[in-house]
Amino acid sequence: MMSTTDWTFNIYRFNPETDQKPTIKSYELQGVDSEMMLLDALLAIKKQDPTLGFRKSCREGVCGSDGMNVDGVNRLSCVTRLSELNNPVEIRPLPGLPVIRDLIIDMEQFYKQYRAVKPYLIGAEPEPEVERLQTPAQRDLLDGLYECILCGCCSTACPSFWWNPDKFLGPAALLQASRFIEDSRDEATHVRLDQLDDAYKLFRCHTIMSCVQVCPKQLNPTRAIGRIKERMVQNKL
């Protein structure tokens, strides 16, 4: 059933050129359908105030642009219904990384950790002239790993990542590491496991599981991290 209500949005605003410190600005949308997605609400607010900054692209939860902290939880605005939220809605940038402006964060540290796990298939050379074979069972091991959209919701919800963003790789990068460790076509498994065997990179995960709670693709980085640890033990035997 469509129910229309007035909604209030308290949004974090910060423009480094004019603001000493961030402020919270309130916006009203009157008579909106509560089944509306939060991204559509933000676009309506941006019509009132075009200076409001946030990233956006696909509108359907596959590009990972619009991660933000909503009522204290990291979410993608395009797949979040207003009816799931409190009224007023509290919207802040994803926590733990520097804010560039308003809801836009600087994700370079996050991408750096992603690149650090060598997130690419290292296959045997020479490449065959056709596809490498992979059984459906081997391919199934990649389900739950390859679907990551790099939105950053998980890593920026992780207290260990907040504490050591430069040393602990964080759930997103570790999920990627697992995606290649588990791939039967990858030849660098041992190297990958050796590189992760460090007091910080992997082992700062304290299975708090915030990452699992917030992942908009319902992926489970904690399980992937556990799997890496098992593989590490097997690797040493």
């Binding site: 298939l121 459906p136 990649l142």
Partner: peptide, 8 residues
């Protein structure tokens, strides 16, 4: 070969 996880 680049690593695309095609269904099998």
């Amino acid at each position: 070969h680049y690593g695309v996880p095609f269904s099998r």
